[in-house]
């Protein structure tokens, strides 16, 4: 049964919201609009010169397949843990001194005296464990979902390189506080390295900056830990993410696309 209702009376003119009008020929009509226009101008200016918006749209508005679930967040969580390591690492680097005589004291200064020093150092220290756990979970996800198969083989290979580099970060970072534990663990680690065939002894000499654990070993570990390896990781992460966007993320292996009957011609 159709229902009849009286139309609601219109609001008094004083309470009616005024429709926004686009800025006319005589320019924007208020500070907010001026700011908005300014923003658009800046973006347009940048885009005219860089065409970045296309890439951004390509990255952000690509579709992720049906069935994408929480397991697919592990990769980006790994990246986030890496970013957290980078930020906390920068703050630690402001106080850290990689000389064998001063390293330990500078870390002690961070822990005892610097503002929030112990907190930041704790984040960096435990963040490394979190990153290792996340990277392993992410790898397990891609393994059990068969996500390394065609056409994503290369992304798997890049991923394994990232895994090795992450462990290299951990190994080189462990020495830096220069306390007993880090010193002796690293001595043993480098010696183990040296037992390897062919490149083993050379790798150990490279790490130690000489045949013995000496004054420059620490600064070498520091340079590897804060520049060489993170640079490689960042570059490979970029390649990894580019391939993710280019190829798309897999659908969970049990998903099947249902085909529309009308499109299937040759079914008898």
């Amino acid at each position: 049964m159709p229902r009849f209702r009286l139309p609601t009376p219109s609001r008094p003119a004083a309470l009616q919201s005024k429709a926004k009008r686009p800025a006319g020929a005589n320019g924007p009509s208020g500070p907010v609009e001026t700011a908005a226009e300014g923003g658009i101008h800046v973006v347009d200016w940048l885009d005219e010169r860089t065409s970045l918006s296309g890439g951004l749209r390509w990255m952000m508005f690509r579709k992720v397949p049906k069935g994408t679930n929480w397991f697919y967040t592990l990769g980006s969580a790994t990246m986030f843990a890496f970013l957290s390591q980078a930020v906390t690492g920068i703050f630690l680097a402001m106080y850290y001194d990689p000389s064998p005589t001063r390293a330990y004291e500078s870390v002690r200064y961070i822990v005892n005296d610097a503002f929030l020093g112990e907190f930041v150092r704790g984040m960096h220290r435990w963040g490394s464990s979190v990153m290792v756990i996340l990277i392993c979970l992410h790898m397990a996800r891609t393994f059990f979902f068969g996500a390394y198969k065609y056409p994503r083989e290369l992304n798997w290979v890049i991923g394994v390189a990232l895994l090795i580099l992450t462990f290299a970060m951990s190994f080189t970072g462990y020495l830096l506080p220069f306390d007993q534990r880090s010193y002796w663990a690293t001595i043993v680690g480098v010696n183990i390295n040296g037992t390897g065939p062919l490149v083993g002894p050379y790798l150990s000499d490279f790490l130690r900056a000489g045949p013995e654990f000496g004054a420059t070993t620490l600064s070498r570990f520091y340079a590897i830990h804060m520049m060489l390896v993170p640079g490689l990781i960042a570059a490979l992460m970029g390649a990894h993410l580019y391939l993710v966007a280019k190829l798309g993320t897999t659908a969970p292996p049990w998903m099947r696309a249902e085909r529309e009957k009308s499109l299937i011609e040759d079914e008898v």
């Binding site: 990255m59 952000m60 508005f61 690509r62 579709k63 992720v64 397949p65 049906k66 069935g67 994408t68 798309g248 659908a251 998903m255 696309a257 085909r259």
Partner: peptide, 9 residues
């Protein structure tokens, strides 16, 4: 097909 049925990132 699965991707076409999916949602934007």
């Amino acid at each position: 097909l699965l991707k076409a049925k999916g949602k934007p990132f």
